[in-house]
């Protein structure tokens, strides 16, 4: 098998394998690009639990252990983020592709509240688009982050192999230069003019 054929086949099969992610990134970019058409204010929420509760919360440092404790207390598990909206409150945001919940621990009131969000459908897309990183503790979440990297490496490979394949067809070099040069020039205009 020649080098040229290896490049062509890798370009194709990599695209077939990563097609689901690539299509997801394309379609999910629409609600970001046209946010004014999709945003209808805060998502409705229902209170699942609201009761007294006491937990020692460290003043500073990593809050994920405390977040995990609050998740267990709320009967939840999985991907989450922990943050402090103010010095008297700790929030844990629990999410998957389909649903999300928020746990509020009010330190001064010694009170625990769990809210379930009824997300609009487009947040299913934007949630997938924005998901990444290696902060979660589970293997599958890390595997998703690896796939995110793989898609980006795939895009870099498609750029390089696409340019190689273009160069191998002499009759399209002229228009190809025009497209490549036009795109690069437009990008420079945006870079300095925006």
């Amino acid at each position: 098998m020649s080098f040229h054929l290896v490049v062509r086949r890798t370009h194709l099969y990599l695209a077939m394998f990563l097609l689901s992610w690539f299509l997801m990134y394309a379609v999910s970019s629409v609600p970001f690009s046209h946010a004014e058409r999709f945003n209808r204010g805060p998502a409705p929420r229902t209170v699942r639990l609201d009761r007294p509760y006491e937990l020692a919360v460290p003043e500073s440092g990593d809050l994920r252990a405390v977040g995990a404790q609050l998740l267990r207390e709320a009967g939840l598990q999985g991907a989450h983020g922990v943050y402090r909206p103010n010095p008297k409150q700790l929030n844990v945001y629990r999410f998957d592709f389909w649903a999300s919940s928020e746990i509020n621990y009010f330190q001064d009131q010694k009170r625990l509240r769990v809210l379930d969000y009824q997300r609009p459908w487009h947040q299913f897309l934007t949630g997938m688009h924005a998901r990444g990183g290696f902060q979660q503790e589970t293997f599958l979440n890390d595997a998703w982050a690896v796939l995110v990297d793989l898609v980006q490496m795939g895009i870099l490979f498609w750029i390089a192999s696409g340019i190689y394949m273009w160069w191998k067809i002499p009759q399209v070099r002229g228009w190809g230069w025009l497209a490549l040069g036009g795109g690069a020039a437009s990008a420079v205009v945006f870079l300095v003019g925006l």
């Binding site: 990297d149 870099l156 795109g183 990008a187």
Partner: peptide, 20 residues
């Protein structure tokens, strides 16, 4: 694809940066 090389290059590299 040739026209949009700068866009796709930027989106790929920036996504890797944000992922890490």
């Amino acid at each position: 694809a040739l026209f949009l090389v700068p866009w796709m290059l930027m989106y790929a590299v920036s996504t890797m940066t944000m992922n890490h």
